[in-house]
Write a protein that binds this DNA or RNA. Structure first.
Lengths: 245, 245
DNA sequence: CAGCCGCATTGACCGAGGTCAACGTCGGGC
DNA sequence: GCCCGACGTTGACCTCGGTCAATGCGGCTG
């Protein structure tokens, strides 16, 4: 059994991203073992990573692209329940059957570990399990914010909130420095599924925010934000939270 | 350091409930140590367990009563993001400041552990951490179902879904055997906060379900369900899921 | 017992957002 | 270049659920 060591980030030697779950512990030998058994897989945009109810044989993280997790009702109504960006972790340990669809929104590359192997490592390495708990708790927090958005915010507040999330993510990814620009990775339909709205309402509220001067639409997929505080205001959020908060 | 043992449920000797997180590992000595440092605290109905943004000094589980977790916007709009029943775990390890209000809905008794002590034990006992990961993953799944409900279901489907959740919980708690009766633990206002609706809409849709014969209102807080399949149908859920599913 | 307060129900009305349909725009293939 | 299909925008209309207000219904206290 591996002795737990103080958590510390280390890059997998041959991997383009730092896996949030897998690479944040300090045992070098284990890292090498992990590197040996992982593999990459690429999905074209729009393709299915796993379908709801299907058995998923691998667990891993997003290297490049965007993956949406969504639930669909019998009559076709759909709600997105997760939007995963590079370094996000996908797959539920110990439960092989997926409770939602995972779709490649853009072209996607995943870094995957065979499920049984990953689960055994998780059992052997407490630090890995600890990291996974952290990630899951973060996701639960995000899910709860999302519930407030879905249950109580107006269409315009939903759109503005969505944009603040993307803006913060872009800022955190190091795109800060220049003026604030957001590249929307997803279609209006996917935004609607994310926010519990129709495409028409998404479109109308984007126009409304543009006319109010809160956002500038360079084109349909690229947005400039002249005043982040105004966007926060429109999102109905406590104005004290800055761009990084 | 404690050797991880196969997960097995053991009752804390002097505790009326089986703590999902704390008591599901097999080391007897550790259990005794845990028992030694826990304490009980009771809250009157309507009182605050912790307020959003406040530091929470303890972590533990519900022994008796119901606790709601909810987020509030600046203008007073509120969305419930969790409803905790006996044996549910409350408090986020490693993050001392609560991101939501926790309110005692009924009279509530909690079984608590001082935060620093609990966190140290978590680090020492991998099985405890593993159990907590399981719990958090379950809550995340529930949160995602809840998102589908908030984002895409009609008012009537929301009410019916809420009743199926309570019915399943009641059945799982061993109330099965007789005919299906639900005792609503919360007010119409709290139901509205749970479902993203107003009290008036909650009331109207309850009436509508009653007139449709799906439910029978014994009084405002006690509901009889003559046909669970009909309720599932009204909830817009895949009919294949039975009462226990 | 009266009076009151908190909770629930019901009705009348209205508006935010869904629905249906037309149109614009862009990009890729023949 | 032309056509076609995917994506996005805009308009007209309607419906579901929110808002405001009145009423009912116990339970509790003076």
């Amino acid at each position: 059994m591996i002795k737990p060591a103080p958590t510390k980030h280390i890059h997998c030697s041959d991997c383009p991203i730092r896996h949030r779950a897998v690479c944040s512990y300090a045992d070098r030998d284990e890292l090498d073992r992990l590197n040996a058994i992982k593999y990459y897989k690429t999905y074209p945009p729009g393709s299915e990573v796993v379908a709801a109810g299907e058995e998923s044989t691998a667990i891993g993280s997003v290297v490049e692209g965007v993956v949406s997790l969504s639930k669909t009702m019998a009559d076709g109504r759909r709600q997105m329940v997760g939007l995963m960006f590079p370094s996000d972790f996908i797959g539920r340990p110990n439960v092989p059957v997926a409770p939602f669809d995972a779709l490649a929104v853009t072209e996607v590359t995943l870094c995957l570990f065979p499920r049984p192997r990953f689960e055994r490592l998780m059992r052997d390495i407490p630090a890995l399990e600890r990291r996974l708990l952290e990630i899951t708790l973060d996701e639960l927090d995000a899910a709860r914010d999302w519930m407030l958005l879905l249950g109580r915010k107006t269409a315009q507040e939903k759109i503005a909130s969505f944009l603040t999330i993307l803006a913060r993510r872009a800022a955190a990814a190091g795109d800060s420095g220049g003026s604030l620009r957001i590249a929307l990775p997803i279609t209006r339909e996917a935004i609607g599924d994310y926010l519990g709205l129709t495409i028409e309402t998404v479109s109308r509220q984007m126009t409304a925010l543009r006319k109010a001067g809160v956002i500038v639409l360079e084109d349909a997929r690229n947005i400039h934000i002249p005043d982040f505080a105004a966007l926060l205001e429109a999102a109905g959020e406590d104005s004290d939270g800055g761009l990084i908060a």
